[in-house]
Amino acid sequence: MRFKHKTVVVTGAARGIGKAIALQFASEGAVILAVDLPSGEFRAADADLRALAPESRSLDLDLRDPAAIVEFFNRVEADYGGVQVLVNNAAVSRQVSFANLTPDAIDEITMVNFRGTLLMMQHAGRLMRTARSGRIVNISSIAGKGFRQTSNIAYAGTKGAIIAMTRIAASELGQFGITVNCVCPGITETPMMREWLERQSRDAGTSKSQTLRKLVGTSALARATAPSDIALAVAFLASDEACNITGQSLNIDSGTVWD
């Protein structure tokens, strides 16, 4: 119960990695504030979350809306007195080639992945500075470190920006007892990955299982990453055991890239 009585905000918690992270923290005693866009998936995830942590809540939040982010943190401060852990997981992408990436797609990817993450860190960081403690864990990607099998160049660019922002935020917030780290998943079994896998398979003229075996075969462990693998790493970085770790980007990718 490492997070008993702690308030943990998890973005993009409706499915995949975000849902796994929320459930992991809930299983360790946290009160979860799960945020995502409204959907049937999000309602189903809320039922699973409350089964583990009845005091947790699922709240609709559009990271493209700066005013909504301000309102959310005002509510968090009023209702919970602050936040001890922020996990920035929400992200969007498009399965599109370099030549066909449109300005509208670039704007949406940037607004959610880059600006949304930055604003969430900024507002959570203000509350954490007052408390002089806190943990921020951002979800980047090995695409942000140059892994070529990415959904598109804009997605990879925003994920690289998250790594850089993590380091700058860590340097600025460290004096207040706040750590900031990020996790870089590899090929992970999520709905987003399955969409990407379909495109790769279609382009290569192979089945999805064949494409996946070829992709994960390049990793040291020759397996795909599970959302639970990411959730365990995030929980570690948010725990007291990681109190002396900050500004780091940890690859959870079965040994696909080395840095």
Rank of each mutant, 00 (worst) to 15 (best):
I136K: 09
V137A: 06
V137C: 09
N138C: 11
I139C: 06
I139T: 14
S140K: 01
S141H: 07
S141W: 05
S141I: 09
S141G: 14
I142F: 08
A143P: 00
A143I: 00
G144S: 06
G144W: 05
K145Q: 15
K145T: 12
K145W: 02
F147W: 15
R148Q: 15
Q149K: 14
S151H: 04
S151I: 01
S151D: 13
N152V: 11
I153V: 15
A154G: 00
Y155W: 12
Y155H: 10
A156Q: 01
A156K: 08
A156C: 08
A156V: 06
T158E: 05
K159G: 02
K159D: 02
K159V: 05
G160I: 08
G160D: 06
A161N: 00
A161E: 10
I162E: 01
I163A: 06
I163W: 09
A164S: 15
M165R: 00
T166L: 05
T166A: 09
T166H: 01
T166G: 11
R167L: 08
R167H: 09
I168P: 00
I168V: 14
A169H: 10
A169N: 09
A169R: 03
A169M: 12
A170W: 05
E172Q: 15
L173K: 03
L173C: 11
L173D: 03
G174M: 06
G174E: 08
G174T: 06
Q175M: 13
F176W: 12
I178K: 05
T179F: 03
V180L: 04
V180F: 03
V180K: 03
N181Y: 09
N181A: 01
C182Y: 01
V183T: 00
V183C: 13
V183E: 01
C184Q: 10
C184S: 05
P185D: 02
P185Q: 03
G186N: 01
I187K: 04
I187P: 00
T188Y: 09
E189I: 12
E189P: 00
E189N: 15
E189W: 11
T190A: 06
P191N: 13
